[in-house]
């Protein structure tokens, strides 16, 4: 019992601290690196919860692919230092207020309702294995899976079309 508590608190502190660091750092590159640290700690949390496949997907897709895309765009545009130039002063207090209200509300609901589920020990090692998740995705959730594939195709085509630099006009010449 005790080691799990220690792991929970250390990881939780690192995750929340890195999220706050992402907010406070002026340089967008540092924000992205803090976010990678946050995603890595969340991946360790998935391991603690007994979901190794999700943890690995978290590392490869989120911390790997998505954040590399972020860093690539930040450095391509040179968008590191765009915070200081403009400012709407009323925006930050309202944002902080809304965030704190949401946090207090969620914490109050969770504590007052006393969401206490017993917590089942994992009966076998292969629950949550990629094989089981794949079988579920291809049998019960086949339609959402196919819709997701269409969504990914649409996103790919959309990204290519949006970033194309006025190619049709050049073809007419």
């Amino acid at each position: 019992m005790q080691p799990e508590l220690i792991v929970f608190f250390v990881l939780g502190t690192v995750a929340v601290g890195s999220a706050i660091g992402m907010l406070l750092s002026r340089n967008a590159v540092y924000s992205a690196l803090f976010l990678i640290l946050n995603f890595a700690t969340v991946a360790v949390f998935y391991l603690v919860l007994g979901a190794p496949f999700i943890a690995m997907v978290q590392v490869t897709v989120y911390a790997g692919a998505i954040m590399v895309l972020f860093l690539f765009v930040i450095m391509l545009l040179g968008a590191e230092h765009l915070e200081r130039r403009t400012g709407a002063d009323w925006q930050k207090p309202i944002a902080a207020l809304l965030g704190v209200v949401l946090l207090v509300e969620a914490g109050y609901v969770l504590l007052s309702e006393s969401v206490s589920l017993p917590g089942i020990n994992v009966p076998a090692a292969d629950y949550g294995a990629p094989v089981a998740i794949g079988e579920l995705l291809f049998s019960e959730y086949l339609l959402p899976f196919e819709v997701t594939s269409v969504l990914l195709l649409a996103a790919m085509v959309g990204a290519i079309v949006i970033t194309r630099r006025d190619a049709p006009r050049r073809k007419k010449r």
């Binding site: 995750a15 929340v16 999220a19 706050i20 992402m22 907010l23 967008a28 946050n38 968008a79 765009l82 915070e83 403009t86 400012g87 709407a88 925006q91 930050k92 309202i94 944002a95 902080a96 809304l98 965030g99 704190v100 949401l102 946090l103 969620a106 914490g107 969770l110």
Partner: peptide
């Protein structure tokens, strides 16, 4: 919920 709220604050307050 804490992580979600921090993310919400980031979305609402940042300009980049």
């Amino acid at each position: 919920a804490a992580l979600f709220s921090i993310g919400l604050f980031g979305v609402l307050s940042r300009k980049n």
